[in-house]
Each structure stands twice: as C-alpha cells, then as structure tokens.
Nucleic acid binder design. Sequence first.
DNA 1: TGTCGTCATGCGTAACTTTA
DNA 2: TAAAGTTACGCATGACGACA
Length: 352
Amino acid sequence: MPKTPKTALDPNQTQLPLPLPPEVKASGDAWQINGTHPATVPLPNEVIIKKIEGAYTERDRKLWAFLVAAAWDDLLTVDIHQVRTAKVNDLFQSLGGGDTSTAWIWESAKRLRRTNVEWETLDDEGDCSLLSEVAVNKNAKQSGYLKYAFSPTLRKAIKHPTRFSRLRLHFMIGLSGKYAVSLYMLLESVANQRHAVLDVELNQLREWLKIPEDKLNRWVDVKRRALEPALAQINEKPEVAGFSVVMEEVKEGRAVARVRFHVSKSSERREIEDTMMAQPANKAAQNKSKANNTPPLPTSAYEAARKVAGRLDIYTLEQQWREWVSTKQKPDYSTASFVAFCKKKGGSVFIG
DNA sequence: TGTCGTCATGCGTAACTTTA
DNA sequence: TAAAGTTACGCATGACGACA
C-alpha cells in the first residue's frame, strides 16, 4: 500500500545530518620499510568487510591499500593521484610481493577499477569502484606513472570512518595468499576492541574473506587453504603483525557452524599504547583513558546491545558509552546501562 | 618458447566421531 | 552397533610467473 502524504516520512527527518566523524591519520612512511615505526594506513572497516564483486586478487588487495596510503595526505584535496610504478614494484619486491616487471601493477589497477564495493557507515552508504579512474593507456604506461582516483564518497568514508583498522602496510604486503591479506584486515579490526573476539558464522566469514561462491565449499578446505596458512603467517611474527590469534571452531552437532577468533595484541604494541595512554594530551583524551580502565562487559551485554542498536556499531557505541559514563559522579557500568544507551542511540538515528 | 616451481583448488579415501 | 557425517591427508590439475 502506498504511503499517504500524512504517513510518508519527512525527507528532512530521514536525512538528519550526522556530525562527520573525526579524521583519522596514517602513520610512518609507506615508501620506507621501518621496523621500529611501521607504516600504517587506517582503512575503514565498512569498506573492508562489505561485499565485493570482481576478481580481487591478493595483489589487488595489497595494491589498493598501498595506493590509499600513498595518496593519504591529499586524499580530500587532490582528485588525481600518481605513483611511480617502478618504485612501487621495488617496494613490493623487497617485501616479497613484487615482480621483475611493472606489468602486474597496470593489470591490478585495471581490475581495481572494475572491482565494485558496497560500503556502509552510520549516515551514508555507497556502491562504487575501488578506484574511480585509472589511466592505463599506452602514454600512461610509457610515462611510468600510474594515475588514479577515488570516488568522492569513498574518499570521505576512508578519511572519516566510524570504525577503522590501522593496518601495518608492509606486513600486509609481505603476506602470502589472498585470504591471508583479508583475514589480517579482518582481525586487525578486532584487535583494538575491548572484547577482542570475533565470532562469525561460516557463510559470513566466506563473504568477508571474499571466497567465491563456487570455491572452497567444504569447511575443511576453507580451514586448510584459507585460514590455517593465514593464521600461521600472522602468528609467526606477532610483533610485526601487532597481534597473535587463536582460532576456535564452534560446532552445532557434528558440523562446524561458526568460528571464533581470539585476538591478543603483541606485548610491544601494548607497551606503546600504554605509553600513549599515560600521556593524555587533553581532557577528552583523559576521559577516554579513564573510560578504557573501566570494568569489562559480559558477552551477553554485546548480544543484547546488537538487538537494540540497529545498524550502529556496538563497539563504537561502547566507547562512547564509557566516555559518557565516566563523566558521571556515580558511574553505572552495568549491562543495563550499556543496553539502554545503545537503544537510545539506535532509536535516535534511524527514524521509522 | 619450453621448462620448472609455486600457489590455489578439487577430489578421493581412510579414519574417526556422532547419532539413532 | 551400524549408518551417516566429518576430518585429515595426499595427490592431481590448472594458472601463473621466473628463468634459461
């Protein structure tokens, strides 16, 4: 039944402008390999884990992250970016992922142009190519410079994500296997959460890892071909990856129905983050620090919160809730308080 | 251009586990 | 206890890149 003018939603109400999340920053130098100050790029989880159409090979996944990092400083102000392909190839080669020629970069860039991604943030969603423009003609190749662009909405999502993963760029380039790259991205998004456990159904995991529908149909093959090699690489160098991970299979009857990943930050990373927490620069940081030293929530709290938070990210909400509660004279860190907060937030954003 | 090595994937089979 | 389902393991195949 069509909505009458009286029942139709007020377009002004449905498009309440939400404040833009704060801009995140990359760190280190994407072009320089540095063991003590690793180059990181904060890619939005909304883009990382949504549905992707296209080949999206191992090299595509790495190259896209690198191109984002290389364009980072000018992402919002410059439309067309360029990188010297020989220099990119040298870097990838030194990390074990390059080639004798730069041909793969042009091919990969073409695929990224054709690879469609669906992404979603609190106040926006989109469907676009990973690269909106790529110059791959003869003249471009002769110049030795790859020119590329991102769509405006994707640029905004990248620079102002509601939730992001700070990926260690050079570690990611050094990974072997396309599923290793995706799993690393996925687990890094979990590492910074208070409850650093990812509990996921097999179908969802397949989607997140971008396993084609006709590939790796048996759980045993997913485990052996995708998960185990990836986990081995991450756990081999936890200090470089920034975390280690343990996989737990959750069975329903005899069949494996879900997988649970327990992520633990490396001791070196904890030390660095603790040092940063001990030197809060302003009041907001002090509140955040205070909030992070509060009692953990039980798993049931997250489950209850999911039911009332709509599409909002409960971990972002958790951080906001802790900061808000910490300002109270008598802070209430109960599950009920958290769920009520999520319900209020969820209801206030999504009208109708 | 042919050969070799590596990687991703598919599939068969024996052994094991669970259920009725 | 038998049947059915799952797992572990090994081997085969195809794609792709390196190299002579």
